[in-house]
């Protein structure tokens, strides 16, 4: 299980790096699906099977299919690939890369002072649902209202 954690983490990092340097948009989308599925495996290893299932269903299933629909609607074909290639030079990665590396370095510095092990206890659907329909029921209602607002505004924005 522990080797599975590191393996899935490595796959997630590599495929996410492939997403941000990809010029073909559909390939980038497929790498993103791979990355999200790897993160779902990490969730499963960390003892959160409900979150893993939701990650696979909602993120890799629903959200990325939405992306695919929009890419098909916009009809981004071969010419955008050449345009992407001209936009994406190695020079553009220097400044954001340095800034993000500084941020990550500080984060690693902080993290290196922590030395705690987490024991993997399985927290299943029942415990999460008992919380969702108990003390957090108002948050669930607010989330549903947020989704309704997203639905209405997406309909309004995409309308001609």
């Amino acid at each position: 299980m522990i080797t599975l954690f590191y393996l899935a983490g490595a796959i997630a990092v590599i495929s996410t790096a492939a997403v941000i340097v990809q010029t073909n948009i559909v390939h980038a989308l497929l790498y993103l699906i791979l990355s999200l599925l790897a993160v779902a495996v990490v969730f499963y290893v960390l003892g959160a099977p409900f979150a893993a299932a939701l990650e696979a269903i909602v993120y890799a299933g629903a959200i990325l299919v939405l992306f695919l629909f929009v890419i098909m609607m916009l009809n981004l074909g071969q010419h955008t690939r050449e345009q992407e290639r001209s936009w994406l030079s190695a020079r553009m990665f220097v400044a954001p890369g340095i800034m993000s590396a500084l941020l990550l370095g500080q984060f690693l510095n902080v993290m290196s002072q922590i030395d705690q092990d987490m024991a993997i206890t399985r927290v299943g659907v029942m415990e999460v649902s008992a919380l969702l329909f108990g003390p957090y029921v108002l948050a669930v209602e607010l989330a549903s209202i947020l989704l309704l607002a997203g639905l209405v505004s997406a309909y309004h924005l995409a309308k001609k």
């Binding site: 990092v13 790096a17 590396a101 030395d115």
Partner: peptide, 19 residues
């Protein structure tokens, strides 16, 4: 019981965030 260092999980999250 299996254990994973907590900072490894957080470092993975940090790397993904920076990417």
């Amino acid at each position: 019981m299996e254990t994973i260092p907590v900072e490894h999980g957080l470092i993975l999250a940090g790397i993904l965030f920076c990417l």
